[in-house]
Computed example of a mutant assay.
Amino acid sequence: MGRRYVFFDIDGTLVSYAGGTGHIPDATRRAVELLRRNGHVPAIATARGAFLARGVAEELGIGLLVCCCGAHILNGTEVLSAVWLPEGALRRLRGTVSEGFVRSAALDDRCVYMDDEDEAVRDYLDGQAGYPCIRPVAELRRAFLMYSFSPDPSASPLFREPIEGVVLDRTQHFIEARPAGTSKWRGILEAARRLGFAPGDVVAFGDGANDAEMLRGASVGVAVGGAPDAVKAAADLVTDDIDAGGILRACAELGLTDGA
């Protein structure tokens, strides 16, 4: 098999939370090592900001990062693309927070902007970033992504009215706002254009709703065991849970780790 660019989501795909703490299963580490040994390029496609993905990436020796659902793309220290939310979106966030609607957050390339974090959230985010990364919303000047957290996302004042140049993804627990024209798959396509590999060379692994497009678009899309049915339906292959060695098994089934 020729060289493949193998993109992994992070949370629920590379990183397991079984047992209550985030960890990369040993079998997943082995899969990434074997991919590299067989001449393939492991990469990451995540909703996390680059500063929250770097720890996982460095632990696995991964340099190509499609972050913030395709709005921020890096190859090592080189920024390949950065697409920021429009100023109107930032004004909306600052305004709703000042009116008392504080269950919101935003990400730029170094910080999380939020005003209502608890100690557990702060400890987790600072641990992922490797430094104190939370700043008040009043300091927000630019962002790749915004979030509104609510038991009823449809009632969020932040996104009650459309915002030009912004696409919304809704889940049961939050609304994610990203720049129009961005997604994980479109970020992968931009990385391919910039680095000179073909979309047909892409294999993608994921478990969440924001992974479905890249699973459909990749030459082979792999849904891991904990993925919802709609995500599994978008994939070409459904593998076992990551804590049961699903990623390693799928790489072997696809012939990505032959001869290792």
Results as ranks from 00 to 15, higher is better:
E176M: 13
V6D: 06
G196K: 04
T28W: 08
I175F: 00
R170Q: 10
S81H: 14
G200C: 04
S148T: 13
L140Y: 11
I163E: 02
D229Y: 01
L145K: 14
P136A: 03
P199A: 00
A233S: 13
P179C: 02
L35F: 11
R122T: 14
D109F: 06
D26S: 15
G61Y: 13
D108H: 01
V6P: 07
F51V: 12
L80R: 09
H23V: 02
A82T: 03
V137E: 03
L90A: 09
D152T: 11
G70C: 05
L254V: 08
T239E: 10
L85H: 08
K184F: 01
D115K: 03
P25V: 04
P25W: 02
S150P: 00
F51M: 13
S154T: 13
R92H: 10
E117L: 04
A227T: 04
S154E: 15
H72I: 03
A71H: 04
A71G: 03
Q128S: 09
E33S: 14
V231A: 08
T257N: 07
G196N: 07
A31M: 12
S81M: 09
G127N: 07
R91Q: 13
L248W: 14
F174S: 11
T28C: 11
L65C: 08
A120W: 14
G196E: 08
A31R: 05
